[in-house]
């Protein structure tokens, strides 16, 4: 009789691995249960509001005011001159998003190569050095920190010393995205095919030649693709950063909400959606250009 026993070590390892994933899953479920319980117990969760008629009345009123009903003049989003007036804000918002991507792109482009492990360890070219390793860890920590602090918090900090305008918003978005772009680009370098770089090194090329002719051609299309994807995210976030740093659609939206000019808010949201859709299309078109053959 042929024994069809699986190797026991493998089985056991598999079972242990599964229990870690499963244990994590149960822990996560328990955390969720505790979180919901906490939200209900801790204070007014707002869920009781849902049972009151008043809440729904208010919400309905809010929606009708957004739709521009119940006011004497024509709602703002039906007046061409209002579209023109807020168009300037949309233009600024677009400029802010492009500037932010520019800052993130240049910052990441100048540094990502030193944040790749295979470069700093010298496995692609050059010699491994203490300095290279130190720069590697410094950049990785810098990326992690700029990435972990949300855009809005960066904006709150930056408006402390920069004059209002599109620059503080763009800087806040740029710094946050620098961390994201840097990490993504460095990982692309780590995952790339080392053969061209090694071949160049073997034939005596210097580190800059290797960078220009072996690393850049492989990584640049990925880099630009990621950058364009981030642009789609950034344009959605410009509004939020505009809430705190003056400039763009965000500030105007917040002001109009506090003045109860809800038809204006609708107009701004329409502009926002137009920008978001437009950038999505532009980015898709440009990503097609960046693809390699």
């Amino acid at each position: 009789m042929i024994e069809t026993r699986e190797p026991t070590g493998y089985r056991q390892r598999q079972r242990r691995k599964l229990t870690f994933a499963r244990l994590s899953f149960y822990t996560f479920l328990a955390l969720i249960a505790v979180a919901w319980a906490y939200i209900f117990v801790e204070g007014d969760s707002g869920f009781t509001l849902l049972l009151e008629g008043r809440t729904w009345d208010n919400a309905g009123k809010f929606l009708t005011r957004l739709a521009g009903a119940g006011q004497d003049e024509r709602p703002a989003f039906l007046q061409p001159e209002q579209w023109w007036a807020t168009g300037r804000l949309a233009y600024n918002t677009l400029a802010m998003s492009v500037l932010a991507i520019g800052i993130a792109g240049f910052g990441a482009f100048l540094t990502f190569i030193f944040a790749a492990r295979n470069i700093s360890s010298g496995s692609l070219g050059g010699t491994p050095s203490r300095l290279g390793a130190a720069v590697y860890y410094f950049l990785r920590i810098l990326y992690a920190f700029t990435r972990a602090v949300p855009e809005l918090v960066w904006a709150m900090l930056i408006v402390f010393f920069l004059s209002p305008g599109i620059l503080p918003g763009a800087l806040a978005l740029g710094v946050h995205n620098l961390g994201i772009m840097g990490r993504l680009a460095a990982e692309v370098v780590e995952d790339m095919d080392p053969a061209p770089a090694r071949a160049m090194r073997a034939s005596g090329a210097g580190i800059f030649q290797i960078f220009l002719y072996a690393i850049l051609p492989q990584t640049l299309p990925h880099f630009i693709t990621y950058l364009l994807y981030r642009w789609e995210v950034v344009i959605r976030t410009t509004v939020v950063v505009g809430f705190v740093s003056a400039g763009g659609l965000g500030l105007e939206m917040r002001l109009n909400l506090s003045f109860f000019h809800y038809d204006q808010v609708t107009l701004l949201i329409l502009w926002y959606l137009l920008l978001v859709t437009g950038v999505d299309f532009l980015s898709a078109w440009m990503r097609k250009m960046a693809r390699f053959e």
Binding site: Y91, N92, A95, M96, V98, L99, I101, G102, G105, F106, S163, G165, I166, L167, A170, I224, L227, M286
Partner: peptide
């Protein structure tokens, strides 16, 4: 195009 876009966005800064 990308460089031009960034140059354009710089004009938005006062």
């Amino acid at each position: 195009l990308l460089l031009g876009a960034v140059a354009w966005s710089l004009t938005g800064v006062a």
